[in-house]
Computed example of a mutant assay.
Amino acid sequence: MISFNAANIQKEVVDPLFLEWESLSQQIHQAHDERNGLAHTLMEQGIALYERLIVKTSSDSSEELIEGEDYEVLPLNGKERLSFIKARPGQYACYRQLDELFKETKKRLARLRLKK
């Protein structure tokens, strides 16, 4: 398991990524409402943002998410859920799942900050 990096889970470091997700999330939701075909592309950006968050908060020096590895910052079943999302990024259910992963990861990071 790849542990977290205590310095990189601080609010000052991760909050900009969560703010970026909030903005992107609204765009994805609107794209699904309008059925304009942009949701797939926006979701790919959201997936990349989530992976960047996981990599940034981990203690590993890798620049990209390592497939098959467990990360301490991932929520319950996070690896499997992310695989599901990546397989079908254009589906509304995957957007909801990614949104939940961001929320759960934010809570997990807060717990890990208290733990350290």
Rank of each mutant, 00 (worst) to 15 (best):
A39Y: 02
L42H: 06
E22N: 12
F18W: 01
R35V: 00
H40E: 15
N5Y: 10
D33S: 13
I47H: 05
L19I: 09
T41E: 14
G46S: 09
D33I: 08
L24C: 08
E12P: 03
E44K: 15
F4E: 06
L17P: 07
F18L: 03
H29R: 13
I28N: 01
A6C: 11
S25A: 10
D15C: 06
E44H: 10
E12T: 12
K11C: 08
F18P: 01
G37S: 05
I28C: 06
H40Y: 15
A31L: 07
Q26N: 11
A31Q: 07
H40Q: 15
H29S: 11
G46F: 06
R52D: 10
K11I: 14
S23N: 13
Q45G: 07
L38W: 07
Y50K: 00
L19F: 11
D33T: 08
Y50G: 00
F18T: 04
L49C: 03
E22T: 11
F4Q: 04
D33K: 14
E20M: 07
R35C: 02
H32E: 04
I47V: 12
N36E: 01
V14A: 00
I9W: 08
E51H: 05
G37V: 04
M43N: 05
Q10L: 10
I9T: 00
I47S: 09
G46L: 04
L24V: 02
E34Y: 10
E44V: 03
T41F: 13
D15E: 13
N8Y: 12
N5F: 08
E22R: 10
L17G: 04
Q26Y: 12
F18A: 05
W21S: 00
D33A: 11
E20A: 14
Q27A: 11
N5V: 04
I9L: 06
L38M: 10
N8C: 05
P16W: 14
H32T: 01
E51W: 05
E51G: 02
S25V: 03
R52T: 13
Q27K: 10
H32D: 01
H32M: 03
